[in-house]
């Protein structure tokens, strides 16, 4: 599909806020012309199903709104990925499963049936991912889609935010099968770099993962956790965090406490949303298309 058509259709379908090509999305900047987007997927993140509080008085319907918005996209994505914190944490293992079950029921209404799930610390840290795995299977895995290699990394099942040596060895072995120029997309929950350690916006052994990834020329990381967009580079590797579907958080490290931004009745759902990622295996370019839930 021609990229311009893709973007037009997307804009018609769901109220695109803006389209940007970002550094690190290989070749887009270098060649100055858009790549052909061979496919796109949708990233949703940080749903926190079960949250009750003033930061989102509409918490019981926000996820449903997002499902409707994704279903309204004129061109449906090839697949959808949830990058963690599907549910809000609870000490009660029965309640945790109830929330996971309700979450799964609601997202079953997505028209797209290829949906990938990842845990966040709210889903998985208190039981090392046990409940999550009952519903959604493995917490780290790989898959290939139209020539792009996707790797879902779990940095939340360990309550200390570690990927762990075993998973790092698995990552290294998986990458070893690939060409250094292969297009690779990493999906994870927490930032793999020290974004704001004083807010726990980091992965304790994230530097080890980055070291393993560094020899690969076309790596892009999509993550969640911080409830806002953020775009940063580690060398040639771009990191893109996604908006949440429950409440936005302040800019990284901008204040003493990472308290949610207050709900504004005048602009409900402000700061919430999801993104489309269009990509092409030929160039490994990524084009991001950000959607605000308040506009849909």
């Amino acid at each position: 599909m021609d990229r311009r058509n893709f973007l037009n259709l997307a804009a018609l379908g769901g109220g695109a806020v803006f389209v940007s090509s970002l550094p690190g999305c290989a070749n887009l900047g270098a060649t100055g012309k858009a790549a052909n987007a061979d496919f796109y997927f949708v990233q949703l993140s940080d749903v926190h199903w079960g949250y009750q509080g003033p930061a989102n008085p509409d918490a019981s319907v926000t996820l449903g709104k997002a499902v409707v918005a994704v279903n309204a996209l004129a061109v449906q994505p090839d697949f959808v990925v949830f990058t963690g914190d599907l549910t809000h944490t609870t000490d009660d293992p029965i309640e945790r499963r109830r929330r996971l079950r309700e979450f799964r029921q609601i997202v079953a209404d997505l028209k797209v049936k290829d949906v990938r799930f990842m845990p966040g610390e709210h889903d998985a840290s208190l039981d090392r991912g046990a409940a999550f795995m009952e519903f959604f299977g493995a917490t780290h895995y790989t898959f290939d889609h139209k020539g792009v290699h996707f790797i879902a990394l779990d940095n939340v099942s360990d309550p200390g935010a570690k990927i762990g040596d075993e998973q790092l060895a698995w990552l290294e072995a998986d990458l070893a099968k690939l060409d250094k120029a292969a297009p690779i997309v990493i999906l994870t929950h927490r930032p793999l770099f020290d974004l704001a350690p004083k807010w726990d916006w980091a992965t304790r052994d994230g530097a080890k993962a980055m070291q393993i990834l560094m020899p690969y020329q076309n790596v892009t990381v999509f993550y969640g956790h911080i409830h806002q967009e953020n775009h940063q580079m580690t060398g040639h590797i771009a990191h893109h965090s996604a908006k949440s579907l429950i409440f936005p958080l302040p800019a990284p490290g901008s204040q003493e406490k990472r308290t949610p931004l207050p709900w504004d009745p005048a602009t409900p759902y402000k700061g919430l949303g999801f993104r489309e990622v269009a990509t092409s295996p030929q160039t490994a370019a990524c084009t991001l298309n950000e959607f605000g839930l308040e506009r849909s």
């Binding site: 770099f193 020290d194 974004l195 704001a196 350690p197 530097a207 980055m210 070291q211 940063q232 580079m233 580690t234 060398g235 490290g253």
Partner: peptide
């Protein structure tokens, strides 16, 4: 590698 290197 860190965007915000920790204080030594």
């Amino acid at each position: 590698m860190s965007a915000l290197p920790r204080r030594r």
